[in-house]
Nucleic acid binder design. Structure first.
Length: 309
DNA sequence: GGTCCGTCCTGTGGGC
DNA sequence: TGCCCACAGGACGGAC
């Protein structure tokens, strides 16, 4: 499932393979994958045809490619959702079962001629969005030093790999909220790029329970969360991301291997590695949470008083 | 205005 | 073998 490290791996692939190239033609195979484009599939195709991709930028889980050739500053925005993939391939490569959009790119030596958007569960999508200046004049996202952000992603907070992210920013954002800690971490307006997997892993590393009320957090506890988020994301990025199945791959179709390093997520019934190291026995438990699951160690992530779920 | 829930989707795996 | 159901979960609209 693409969270920040997986999206960053894809961004780097786009940077290497499609930046500088012109969209010669495109086909939308499933209009649901461009449903966030206000003008519909035909307008999406007409607008994109003939534009040139200038950069590959990411903030949190949002990816965008600023374009030349449009009447106003705009970008092709991509969100991978649960199962979206952006793949660079030759035109004669077999069409994927869930191929949704196909972009034919101008030729470039040694580079495949197509960029494909493949998405099994259709939670992701592509759309065009106007670019607007960032409120602080700083870079809109990672990958290009441009003070611009798509209107559709303007509400997204700075992400965990942003140099400005740290204890100060996170503590202020968490203390403003009156909710549970994991709910807040999953809110892309608090901090972006965190999904279910890395929320659980970071909370395990920080030894905090997901239902801890955010407005009772002490600064050293927030610091543990901030450091855990940065550490987990950096290690996952170095491993090429987390791939449980074929739903997440990089632009060349390769999987990441961070799933081998997970301590809590998906490990229900197995021993907590930290407790085991301390000579104790505690089994990771799975709780239903927000229509999904949370994985915690009941011994080193104690349920707080006044838990907020 | 802040918080929270339902909905969108398809494939997989378990139970019967 | 075949059917049904639970589960996976990011983002957004709408209810409260």
């Amino acid at each position: 499932m693409p969270e920040l490290p997986e999206v960053e791996v894809v961004r780097r692939g786009l940077d290497a393979w499609v930046v500088g190239r012109t969209v010669r033609d495109l086909e939308v195979h499933d209009p649901r994958s461009v449903r966030r484009h206000a003008g519909g599939p035909a307008d999406f195709a007409d607008s994109l045809r003939g534009t040139t991709i200038r950069h590959a930028v990411r903030r949190g889980k949002f990816l965008w490619m600023p374009l030349d050739g449009l009447p106003e500053p705009a970008a092709l925005v991509a969100h991978l959702g649960m199962s979206g993939q952006l793949l660079v391939e030759e035109p004669d490569a077999p069409r994927e079962k869930h191929l949704k959009v196909r972009l034919e790119l101008s030729p470039a030596a040694g580079k495949p001629a197509e960029l494909r958007f493949v998405d099994q569960r259709i939670f992701g999508g592509l759309f065009l969005s106007r670019l607007r200046p960032t409120p602080d004049g700083g870079p809109g996202g990672h990958g290009a030093d441009l003070p611009l952000v798509p209107e559709a992603a303007a509400h997204i907070a700075r992400d965990v790999l942003d140099p400005a992210f740290g204890t100060d920013l996170l503590h202020a954002a968490l203390r403003r909220r009156r909710t549970g800690l994991k709910r807040a971490l999953l809110d892309q307006g608090v901090v972006s790029g965190v999904g279910n997997i890395y929320a659980d892993e970071s909370l395990w590393a920080a030894r905090l329970h997901y239902a801890r009320p955010t407005d009772t957090l002490r600064r050293p506890e927030t610091e543990r969360v901030a450091e855990a988020l940065k550490d987990v994301m950096a290690r996952a990025l170095a491993a090429g991301g987390t791939s449980f199945d074929s739903l997440y791959v990089n632009v060349n179709g390769a999987s990441g291997y961070f799933d081998r390093s997970l301590n809590a997520y998906g490990r229900a019934g197995r021993e907590c590695p930290r407790c085991t190291q301390a000579g104790l026995v505690s089994l990771i438990r799975r709780d239903p949470f927000m229509g999904r699951s949370s994985y915690t160690c009941p011994a080193c992530q104690r349920t707080p008083r006044n838990a907020r779920y």
